[in-house]
Design a protein around this nucleic acid. Structure first.
Lengths: 280, 280
DNA sequence: CTCCTTTATACTCTAGTTGAGTATATGCCA
DNA sequence: TGGCATATACTCAACTAGAGTATAAAGGAG
C-alpha cells in the first residue's frame, strides 16, 4: 500500500500528541491512504549517517531516526475515503517471484553479480559464495527468506538505481529514499514469519476456500506449494473450520468455505503454526 | 553484563559524533563495562509515553526513544581495564531456569496468576488460557521461547516489583526502569535464535568440548538436552571440527577439543542451523 | 591394584513428519 | 455428453527426531 503512485511507503513524523509509535503510525497511514491498518509489527530502526547516501545530513547538527513497521490489511475492508495505491511487491522485486520458475531477468542480474565478484580478485571467492547462496546457484536451493540479502548484494554491486546503477537495467522499480530497502526487510520478515505464526489470516477475508489461502501464501513466498500437503498441514493444525457454505465462483467443482478459528489463532499467534515451506 | 552492581544494563545517549547506532552503542558499552562487544543485534525501539509508568514525562514537551540491542561477548576475551558486572540472567528470572526441573518458586507465581485471572470473572477464562499456555500448565508443555510473554503476564498481574508488587515476593531481582523487560526480550530472542542460527559460537572460547557447548546451549535455553541427540545434530551440520587436541580437565575420560569452522559459520549465519530444542 | 565413578563416544530402534505421487468427486461449459 | 477445471481423499517411501543402550577411557578411593 503506497503513496505517490507507488513511489513511496506511507510515513510521517512521530509527534507529541501521538500516544505511542504505533498510534502515530496508524494515524499517518490512515491519513495518507484512507485505509486503516490491522496487524502491525516493528521492523527496524535506522539512524545511520550514511543512510541512503544522504551526505548532506552530516553537515547539519541533527539526525533522522526512522522506525519502520510491517503492516497487514484486508483489501476487502476498504472504506470509501481516499484510495490507497495498491502495488504488488514483485513490481519492485521481480526476481523474488519464482512462482512460474526462475524469472527470465534473473540471469542478467546474476551475470552482473559475477562480474562484480570478479572485479576484486582478493574477495572474488567469498563474493561468489555469497551470490551462490543468496540466489540459489551452484547446487544451493532458492531460499525465499533471503530477500533482504539479495537486495543488499545487488545494492553493494550497484545493480539497483538507488545505489547508482544506470537506469534501464532490469532490476525492478526503485522507490523514494531507502523505502525499497525497507520493503525488502518487510518481505523477508513476513516470509519467515508465515512459517511459524498464523499471520496469513490477517490478509484473508472472513470466508475463503483452501485454494485461496494457498494462493495467498504462495504470493507471499513467491513459490508454488504442493496442494495435498498444504491442505494436510492446514487442517492438522485446526486453525480453520468449515462455515458449512460452498462457493462455485472458483471455476471447477464448488469449494467449501472456511473461516479461521479466532480462539485458536490467539494462542497460535504466540505459539507456532506450520506451512510446507521448509528447506531441505 | 551489567552496570551499577547488576541494577541496570549499559546504555547511553546517541550523539552526533557517533557514526551509527551500533558504533555509539559499542562506545557506551566499552566505556561502562571495559569490555568490547562482539555480536550485536537490534531488539526493539520504545517510545511510548507510558513506558515504565513515567507519567512525569507526559508533562514535558519531549519524548525519549530507546533503542535496545542484544549483544554477545566471550567472557574469556576480557581485557584488564574496568570490570563488567557479570550476572546470570536467572538472578532476574529464576522461573526461567528449568534445568533442574520446575523451580520451587514457580508454584507461588502461578497461584498468584490464578488469583489475578479469577479477579475479573469476564476475562477469567481467557486469562487462564494465557497462563496455561505461557507457563506450560494444564497439559501444555513448557516452552522456553515464551520468556517475554511470561514476564508480561507477571507484569500485568502486578507480580513484579516494577509493576507495583510489594517487595519480598519471590519473583526475581528487579532492575532500573524497564531494563528487566528489555532483558526478557533479549532472552526470548536469543532462545529463539539459537535454534536456527549458529549464534552460540559467539559465546564460546576458541576451543571447547562438545559437553561445554551443550552446557552453554542448556544455560541459554534453561533446559537440559539429550546428549546423544545433541552430538548427532552438531556434527551432522559440520559446524565444528576437531582440533586434534584433547583435554582432561573435564573430569572423566578426556574429551576432544573442537573449534568452529568459520567458513561454514559465515554461510550458516545467514541460513540455518539446528538444535534439538523442538516442541512436540 | 582393583573397583567405582565420571565423562566421552558410538550405535540402535521406533514413531512421527514430510515430500511426492495418485485417484476420485463434482461442478460448468461447449 | 464429454472434456475441463477445480476440489478432496488416500498412499508410500525417505528422512528426522526423540529416546534408550552399550562401550571406552580417564581419575580416585579403598
Amino acid at each position: 500500500m503506497t503513496i505517490r503512485s507507488g513511489d513511496a511507503l506511507p510515513s510521517g513524523p512521530f509527534e507529541l500528541e501521538h500516544r505511542s509509535l504505533q498510534a502515530g503510525l496508524r494515524e499517518w497511514v490512515g491519513d495518507q491512504t484512507g485505509h486503516p491498518v490491522g496487524y502491525l509489527e516493528q521492523l527496524y530502526t535506522f539512524a545511520d549517517r550514511d543512510r541512503d547516501h544522504m551526505e548532506a545530513q552530516a553537515e547539519t547538527d541533527s539526525r533522522t531516526i526512522s522506525i519502520s513497521y510491517l503492516g497487514l490489511v484486508r483489501e476487502q475492508a476498504a472504506p470509501g475515503a481516499g484510495k490507497p495505491g495498491w502495488h504488488g511487491w514483485y513490481e519492485y522485486f521481480p526476481w523474488e517471484d519464482q512462482r512460474r520458475g526462475r524469472p527470465g531477468g534473473l540471469v542478467a542480474v546474476t551475470d552482473a553479480l559475477r562480474l562484480w565478484a570478479g572485479a576484486e580478485p582478493s574477495r572474488r571467492e567469498h563474493r561468489n559464495r555469497r551470490v551462490d547462496f543468496a540466489f540459489g546457484l551452484d547446487g544451493a536451493a532458492w531460499n525465499e527468506d533471503l530477500a533482504l540479502q539479495r537486495y543488499e548484494l545487488m545494492y553493494e554491486a550497484r545493480l539497483v538505481t538507488e545505489a547508482g546503477a544506470f537506469p534501464g537495467f532490469a532490476t525492478g522499480r526503485p522507490m523514494f529514499a531507502d523505502h525499497r530497502r525497507i520493503l525488502a526487510t518487510a518481505i523477508a520478515r513476513l516470509r519467515a514469519k508465515i512459517k511459524y505464526r498464523p499471520v496469513v489470516f490477517e490478509l484473508m477475508p472472513e470466508k475463503f476456500t483452501l485454494l485461496q489461502l494457498q494462493r495467498t501464501v504462495e504470493a507471499l513466498a513467491g513459490l508454488t506449494l504442493h496442494k495435498p500437503n498444504f491442505r494436510r498441514l492446514i487442517d492438522q493444525q485446526e486453525l480453520i473450520e468449515e462455515t458449512g457454505e460452498m462457493t462455485s465462483e472458483t471455476g471447477g467443482r464448488p469449494a467449501k468455505l472456511f473461516r479461521y478459528r479466532s480462539a485458536v489463532l490467539e494462542e497460535r499467534a504466540l505459539a507456532g503454526s506450520k506451512l510446507p515451506l521448509a528447506r531441505n
